[in-house]
Amino acid sequence: MSSVLAAVKEKPASSNVSEALKALSVYASIKGSNAIGPMWAVAENYRFEPGLIEAARLVKEEIGEMMNVQVIAEAPMNSANPYFSTAWRQAFYGGFTMDMGVHYIAALRMVAGCDINKLAALSRHIDKTLPPPDNISVLFELKNGCNGVLIISMSASSRKMIWRVVGSEGTVQVERGIQDGYHGYLVTFYPSGKSERSSFYPFSGVQEELTVFAKDIANISFKGMQASEADVRSSPEEGARDVAVIEAILKSSFDNGAWVQVDCIP
């Protein structure tokens, strides 16, 4: 029997790309040739949500050629929100846009099944109780050549989260909502020329990611699995890729919408 040193960190993986790369380098040097650990996992529950996983499957298998992607995230962040008063979230470069934005990017990357290549963003700062910026509009290009738009509003009075992927043979939409008293995601597939199909998936991402984390530890400790074989959805590299997109958004918005290449995380 072997033992493994394991740690799970709340997202985001870091406050910027430079910090992420340094941390990944240190992590690699600590692991060295030690196959059983340590294991570093980043808590990103969106990658474990059944609704988003099903949407990713539909996009991959059912929609044909991807034509465009649309994401809307209206997330009221005010004094009534329990996360509003946490100082470390306020202190991030980009504030809540970085802290919460990595969730939207994690879902976008997973549902689209593709990373973002480059982007251009414009921003505004409306609610002065929030760190800037609190409203962002983004035009992005995926690495598969498909274009998309992303709208984030931290100072909206309403709440709405939608990921929509339009393809040549159908469209997949994921929308956060409530059904039968449960919060979750309504996944709707609009096939070309056929009736739409919808299914509701209650939130369970947090439970799923913790279950997978515990299973990985058990497999490393008792079944000889290597730490490098742990579930990639919790890997610090995946978390860092989300951070890289948000940092590119912030850079572009502070440069009046200039196109910015998203940093590549190996």
Rank of each mutant, 00 (worst) to 15 (best):
M225I: 03
A56V: 03
Y27K: 03
G113E: 04
Q207F: 08
T188V: 03
M225R: 14
E229R: 01
D231V: 07
S3Y: 07
W88T: 15
P266K: 12
N117L: 08
R109K: 11
D216I: 01
V174R: 07
S234N: 08
V243N: 10
V260K: 12
R47C: 03
L21Q: 15
I72P: 05
N68A: 13
M1R: 04
K22M: 08
V111L: 10
E54Q: 13
A6L: 06
G51R: 08
Y185F: 15
K118S: 14
Y190Q: 13
F48V: 08
A227S: 14
V59L: 06
L150S: 05
S168D: 11
K31D: 02
A214N: 12
E229M: 11
E238L: 04
S79K: 15
Y46M: 04
A43F: 13
T86K: 15
C264G: 01
W259Y: 09
V26P: 01
L24P: 10
S252F: 03
V59Q: 13
I249Y: 09
S198V: 06
P38G: 05
N81T: 05
A121R: 00
M98A: 11
G170F: 04
E175K: 10
L52D: 10
G94K: 07
W259G: 00
A214C: 14
E229L: 12
A244N: 03
D263V: 06
K251L: 08
P202S: 12
I36H: 15
L24Q: 14
F92P: 02
T171L: 03
A20H: 07
S2D: 11
I105K: 01
N16I: 04
F200P: 05
F96I: 06
A106I: 02
D127N: 15
N117F: 04
V149G: 09
R47K: 09
G205F: 01
V102W: 03
V8D: 01
S235Y: 11
E175V: 13
D115Y: 04
V149E: 09
Q179L: 11
W259V: 10
G64R: 12
F254W: 11
E238W: 00
G148M: 01
C146N: 03
L119D: 02
I162W: 03
V69S: 02
F92K: 15
T171Q: 10
I36D: 14
G37E: 09
I30N: 03
E175R: 12
A91D: 15
H125A: 03
A56W: 00
L24T: 09
G184L: 01
K60A: 13
P131I: 10
Y104H: 10
G113F: 01
Y185N: 13
V17E: 11
K22G: 08
S153Y: 02
S234H: 04
W88Y: 15
Q179I: 00
Y104V: 12
I53G: 07
Q226E: 14
S228P: 06
Q226M: 13
R197C: 04
N45R: 06
K118M: 05
M110V: 00
S25F: 06
E44G: 04
L21A: 06
K60S: 14
V138D: 02
A7R: 08
Q90Y: 09
F203H: 12
S3I: 07
L52A: 15
I217T: 10
E44V: 02
V17N: 11
F48W: 10
G184Y: 05
F96A: 02
I72E: 11
V71C: 08
V206D: 13
Q261D: 13
K160V: 03
Q179N: 09
S221E: 13
T188P: 01
D255G: 00
S2K: 12
V212E: 14
M154S: 14
